[in-house]
């Protein structure tokens, strides 16, 4: 059986390398993007093999799902333009350079990596887990031990959305060449399931793989699907509506939790004794909501309209 597992790993690695090669070298841009999406899919299998279900979940929701939708949508602007007959790659970067340089780098990295004892922090986590307020170690690390990273991480998401808004208006969506009647039905059918699964993942977070990030991503993906199914983007950039507030809610709440620690005379982000569990629950819900909207906002690639509709006539 060990042989079968080894064969599985080898095959997976070979497929990943092949796909990475295709994603960087394929002559056709769409070919490259599909290769990259499949790369993400197989990467999730690799995470599963490496006993990292949390990472697999995030990769499935964010890596393969949301990123795939982003890349495919970006093609709409890029694919329309006529292809220029220029070389796709820089000249002069011949194999003479890359083969030796690549092999040297590879040898160096592998040598270094084999020498790692990888002591890990597993024991430290086990020792502190009971005080963290949650049963699942990854959630404990994200929202308690290293909550500062998570605050900045949600900040990065929010910041990315602000940057994208600052760059200009969202491009109006293209009208499909042949609208299908099945699409709106699909949206109506699936959206409740998206919401349900997102809520389930959020709830799972405290004692198993799940939590705000996959949940938010699934929720956001549901929004993207609704948009594709013909719904109007309901998010508005108007400064009067609630949207800007909800977008920044996750970061604001995390920041408040951090400051609360300082104000009560303790460390930044130190939850009062015994209240860690409820703090983390509130943080998860707020963060999940924000993340969903932020991922949706990232997908729009620009600032949505302030008011009014976004019909095909505009």
């Amino acid at each position: 059986m060990a042989l079968v597992v080894l064969a599985f790993d080898l095959l997976l690695a070979a497929a990943l390398i092949w796909l990475a090669w295709q994603a960087t070298r394929a002559a056709d841009l769409f070919h490259a993007v599909v290769s990259f999406i499949v790369f993400g899919l197989l990467m999730a299998l690799a995470w599963v093999r490496l006993e990292a279900p949390d990472v697999a979940l995030a990769e499935a929701a964010i890596g393969a799902g949301a990123t795939g939708a982003l890349l495919l949508s970006a093609l709409d602007r890029l694919a329309r333009r006529p292809r220029r007959h220029a070389p796709l790659y820089e000249p002069g970067t011949a194999w003479g350079f890359w083969l030796p340089a690549g092999s040297a780098l590879l040898a160096m990295l592998t040598l270094a990596a084999w020498n790692l004892p990888a002591p890990g922090l597993g024991n430290e986590i086990l020792a502190s887990l009971s005080a963290s307020g949650v049963e699942h170690a990854v959630t404990a690390v994200l929202l308690n031990f290293r909550a500062l990273d998570t605050l900045l991480e949600i900040g990065v998401l929010l910041l990315a959305a602000v940057v994208i808004w600052a760059l200009g208006q969202a491009p109006p969506p293209l009208v499909p060449s042949m609208p299908s009647p099945a699409l709106p039905a699909l949206g109506r059918l699936l959206f409740p399931i998206f919401v349900l699964v997102a809520a389930y993942l959020l709830w799972r977070g405290s004692h198993g793989p799940g939590g705000a990030f996959p949940a938010g991503a699934v929720f956001g993906a549901g929004g993207i699907l609704m948009l594709l199914a013909g719904a109007r983007p309901w998010i508005r950039s108007s400064e009067h509506g609630p949207w800007r507030l909800i977008l920044s809610l996750g970061m604001a709440v995390l920041l408040a939790a951090g400051v609360a620690g300082t104000l009560s005379g303790q460390d930044f982000f130190q939850y009062p004794k015994g209240t860690a569990a409820s703090f983390i629950l509130v943080l998860e819900v707020a963060a999940g909501l924000s993340i969903a909207l932020l991922i949706f906002a990232l997908y729009l690639r620009g600032k949505p309209r302030e008011h009014g509709s976004w019909g095909a006539a505009e």
Binding site: V33, I37, G65, G68, A69, L72, S73, L174, L228
Partner: peptide
């Protein structure tokens, strides 16, 4: 999601 994005966008 991927298929729908593909058909209706790319």
């Amino acid at each position: 999601l991927a298929s729908v994005t593909f058909v209706s966008r790319a």
